[in-house]
Computed example of a mutant assay.
Amino acid sequence: MRPGGQPNLQQLMKQAQKMQQQVASAQAELAETELTGSAGGGLVTVTLTGLGEVKSVHIDPKAVDPDDVETLEDLVVAALHAGAEEVRKLTDEKMGSATGGLGGGLGIPGF
């Protein structure tokens, strides 16, 4: 801070630019990262990007029972939830370090 309690605006702008570059880098890394979620002991596996986009779904033929489609549906949903949780963890890790902990709770969009 400057004398009189005024923040150095130029320094704040530099910090904001640096944070913006770190966030862009973290987002690019998330987009390239693939994570998996599975359910039913691996009977259903989903692959997602670090941004949460579903890339693939693998269903083991043992999970397919024409008389019990509901269980298969539940396994797919559970695998998607597991994958989404992995995405959330990675996002918190990457974006938290990029924003210096400014996200989560401050209501800053995208953090």
Rank of each mutant, 00 (worst) to 15 (best):
P7W: 05
G52R: 03
V23G: 06
A84D: 13
G104C: 00
I108D: 04
V23L: 12
G50Q: 03
V69M: 05
G110I: 10
H58F: 14
P109Q: 01
N8G: 05
L48M: 15
L30G: 07
D60V: 01
G5C: 05
E29G: 06
A39I: 07
G50P: 13
A26E: 10
G100Q: 11
S97R: 01
Q21L: 06
D65V: 01
G100M: 10
G50M: 10
T91M: 09
S56M: 05
E34T: 15
L9E: 02
A39D: 08
T45K: 08
G96R: 04
Q6W: 14
K89S: 10
M95A: 05
L80S: 04
G104P: 10
L80N: 02
F111E: 04
G37F: 15
Q17R: 10
R2P: 06
L12G: 02
E32I: 09
Q17N: 09
G42T: 11
Q11H: 12
G96N: 07
D68G: 01
G37W: 15
M95P: 15
G42V: 12
E70F: 08
E53K: 11
S97G: 06
D92I: 08
T33E: 12
D67N: 07
Q20E: 14
D67L: 02
P66T: 00
G110N: 07
A39F: 10
G5I: 09
G37C: 08
F111H: 08
A98I: 02
Q15W: 05
L35R: 03
T49A: 02
E29I: 03
E34L: 09
T33V: 05
D74I: 11
